[in-house]
Amino acid sequence: MNVPWAAGQVPRTQGIAQNDDVVRARQQVRGHAQQCKLSLVDQTKFITAASELARNTLVYGGGGEMRSGLVERDGRRGVAAVFEDSGPGIPDIELALTDGWTSGGGLGLGLSGARRLVDEFFLDTEAGRGTTVSIVKWSR
C-alpha cells in the first residue's frame, strides 16, 4: 500500500485463522470506519469489502492477518485495511479480478466486488509467494 498510516495512529492487527476471525475483522474495521466518520453508505461499503477480503485470506490464502487503521494523505483522512497471507498467491491477476471467476466454490465476486466498493485497491501477489490486498476509503 502506498498510502501512509495517519500520524500517531498505530494500525491494529487481527489474525485470520478461523471462521469467527472474519467476524472479528469486520468488527475491527467497523470501528475504524466510524472513527474516520465515513458516511453510513461508505462505512457499509468498506466493511463489506473487508469482509470479502478477510474470507479470501482464510479460504484461498490458508489464513493470515489483517491490519487496519486510519490513513492520511494531502490533508485527507481515510480508513485502510491490509490483508496478508502466505498462501499459493494468484498466478493470473487479471483473471482473478474478473467478475464471476473463482478458483474455489465462491461466486467470484470477492476481489472484483471489493475493488468496486472502495476508493483505492492494491493487489500484490505472486504464485507461490502469497497475496497482500490493501483497500482505502476516503472520508468525503
Binding site: S112, G113, R116, L117
Partner: peptide, 8 residues
Amino acid sequence: ITLVELGL
C-alpha cells in the same frame, strides 16, 4: 446500495 455495487 452495497449489494448492487458488489454485483449481487
